[in-house]
Design a protein around this nucleic acid. Structure first.
Lengths: 187, 187
DNA sequence: AGTAGCATGTAATGGGTTACATGATTAC
DNA sequence: GTAATCATGTAACCCATTACATGCTACT
């Protein structure tokens, strides 16, 4: 039972779904490919945490619908009683920032401008996602309260990071040019 | 050549160091254990990206000092020209938040209070780390400029996340109690 | 005598990505 | 036709953690 399995249990506790659907729904919160999810679901079925059932479809390929069992729900409750382990972030830009000093201004600007677009897209996505949520989701007790606060967290972090990139880009733009330019700088 | 190898090259471009030292210095930016770093350094030495030299010590055990080669520096420059891949965060609390609705208020409070302490410690660490940096590091061109902006980024994110936890904790405290309590709530 | 920090390594295992593989339906 | 989306699976490989293993010095 790794963290991803609990994430799948958490999704299935809300509603029975196919592996494909779970794969799509877990993406914003925990990246995982279908090749990791399908075998995990099989193992969880063996362990009696889930039950599976084939559902025929006429418009689309048939699918296997998983549902959480009472044992699965019990495990989920036990997991919720344990403290959450510390978050881990892997960001290549962080390592690149570490050797900015061996690069020129334009290379640095390209890196941060690209990341800036990424954060801007995140802000836009989470803003509209929060906007579309009903007011009930703002209350503890609502099934979507967790989703609501997670989107608020993601939005806050994206905004903070966005401000950081614009701050860095401004510093880079106002930095002295490398050499041979006798042109005056306007800042 | 994976991302971690470039991180090690980046550190070695600043100053020659032992594997043990690299392991400690890379922690704040990319988590990796010594068992991953030592074999990587050996392979990078084989690929002529690094050179190694044993240095004798009297007070502490002898150590193997690695230095970057011109080929290593070339690879580092090539890597800097490529856009940084998107950041990935894995946070168990995110998945737990997703099934807050199956839990009680106290379990939820315990989770967020613990995380709140974590962010508070991060804020404290990065504040003092930034405070100790010399003014030169605030300028592009300084060798420590990258470190400076990374710490600012980490501080901003930690503050944003800290505000988020206090916001969530307040909502939880003001939420209606589960049942059977006829005691008046004071908020 | 025991613990903590410095220092280096390997082995086993688990987590995660990429690639391989198949096949249905719908829309252009 | 062919691309896109839905749908499920396996195999190979790489990345990362835990555990195993050793040994020095300094401090209590």
């Amino acid at each position: 039972m790794n963290t991803l399995s609990y994430g799948l249990l958490a999704l299935l506790a809300r509603k029975r779904s196919s592996g494909y659907d779970l794969m799509l729904r877990i993406q914003p919160f925990w990246q995982a490919k279908h090749s990791q999810i399908y075998p995990l679901l099989s193992r969880m079925e063996e362990q009696q945490l889930l039950t599976a059932e084939w559902v025929k479809q006429t418009d689309k390929p048939d699918k296997k619908i998983y549902a959480i069992t009472p044992l699965g729900e019990q495990r989920l409750h036990e997991w919720m009683q344990m403290p959450a382990s510390e978050p881990v972030t892997r960001d290549e830009l962080v390592l690149k920032a570490f050797c900015l000093w061996i690069t020129d201004k334009d290379t640095a600007l390209a890196l941060f401008r690209k990341r800036s677009i990424f954060y801007q897209e995140q802000i836009h996505y989470f803003e509209q996602a929060i906007h579309k949520m009903p007011d009930e989701s703002h209350q503890f007790g609502s099934q979507d309260f967790g989703l609501y606060i997670l989107r608020q967290k993601a939005l806050g972090t994206a905004r903070s990071n966005m401000e950081w990139t614009t701050w860095v880009i401004d510093m880079l733009k106002n930095a002295a040019p490398p050499e041979m330019s006798s042109e005056p700088q306007h800042h």
